[in-house]
Design a binder for these strands. Structure first.
Length: 292
DNA sequence: AACCAGGGGTACC
DNA sequence: GGTACCCATGGT
């Protein structure tokens, strides 16, 4: 039943901690990484270096997980294509060996980054899980739920969605849900648009600016040249590149190099250092804390 | 263009 | 147990 593969440049733990996705968790005392995507669940273990076991059947692996984890892409070639004289980038790449850019669901990714604004990654995970627990559907093999469909969210009143701790982002999320549910935005059609048109359509959503649009383009629409600039990357630009963005010179893989730089700069500041033990938020309803 | 949003996470006391 | 500061920002 499980699927065994051999892969280079693949480290599910690195991907989990990379900040591109918000529903991967550690299970089994840290030995397995579990994720839920496209309404399905999988857990991955690595019994030895370079060997991986997916606890799903071959059909699910072939039709979903192999592509989701980008296992047909040669990352050693992408790493080799990085500019040699860029020492900081080289260090960032070495630090995150095994990180890959997932091929995530556009709807979930868009929502995740709408919710991400002015939140740290742990907080994003918490409210994503709360949204799923409240409005998602059952998923085989776990008590956790799928990410809610746009039609489901679009039908909800703002006050009901807001119990998930989204704050001022609730109307942004609902604007996205209504535009997608009504067909005003068709994510499947958008997947084949050129970068500029796709960017414009994403930014037509209230609460989606250039950074959230770039994250959605990179992590769901596989526009690998898009390099989102958040507070960490802005610090990298200011501190390591004299305030001049290096990304225009990075070429077709600028977004992937951006991801390496993001992880290194964030970890050097000691932020998000406690994500490794996996959140126990699964199947727990969101409870608003009482401040007394 | 400065200012604000709601609140979780965390370091430090 | 306070509390001050930060967070994969965007709208006004």
């Amino acid at each position: 039943m499980p699927v065994e593969i051999y892969a280079d440049c693949f480290d599910p733990g690195k991907i989990m901690e990379s900040g591109q996705c918000f529903r991967m968790i550690r299970l089994d005392g840290g030995r397995a990484v579990e994720t839920i995507a496209f309404g399905q669940r999988v857990a991955i273990t690595s019994p030895e270096k370079g060997r991986f076991v997916f606890d799903c059947d071959q059909q699910a692996y072939d039709s979903l997980w192999r592509g989701y984890f980008d296992l047909d892409t040669d990352y050693s070639a992408i790493i080799s294509a990085a500019p040699e004289e860029d020492a900081y980038l080289a260090r960032a790449i070495a630090y995150s060996h095994g990180m890959r850019i997932l091929r995530q669901d556009p709807w979930e990714t868009l929502c995740g980054f709408i919710l991400s604004q002015r939140k740290n990654i742990k907080a994003i995970r918490t409210c994503m899980e709360a949204l799923c627990n409240a409005f998602g559907d059952p998923v085989e093999g776990t008590l956790r739920k799928s990410f809610p469909m746009p039609e489901r969210l679009a039908a909800l009143p703002e006050a009901e969605v807001n119990v998930c701790g989204l704050g001022y982002r609730t109307p942004y999320l609902l604007d996205a849900a209504r535009k997608v549910a009504s067909g005003a935005l068709n994510l499947a059609v958008m997947a084949s648009l050129p970068d500029g048109r796709l960017l414009d359509m994403l930014m037509s959503i209230n609460g989606v600016g250039i950074k959230v649009a770039d994250c959605t383009m990179l992590f769901a629409f596989r526009r690998l040249s898009r390099a989102p600039v958040d507070v960490w990357i802005q610090r990298v630009i200011d501190e390591m590149y004299a305030g001049i963005s290096p990304f225009e010179g990075y070429g077709e893989y600028a977004g992937i190099y951006q991801q390496y730089l993001f992880i290194l700069r964030r970890d050097e500041s000691g932020a998000e250092s406690e994500t490794k033990e996996g959140c126990d938020c699964a199947a727990k309803p969101h409870v608003k804390r009482n401040k007394g």
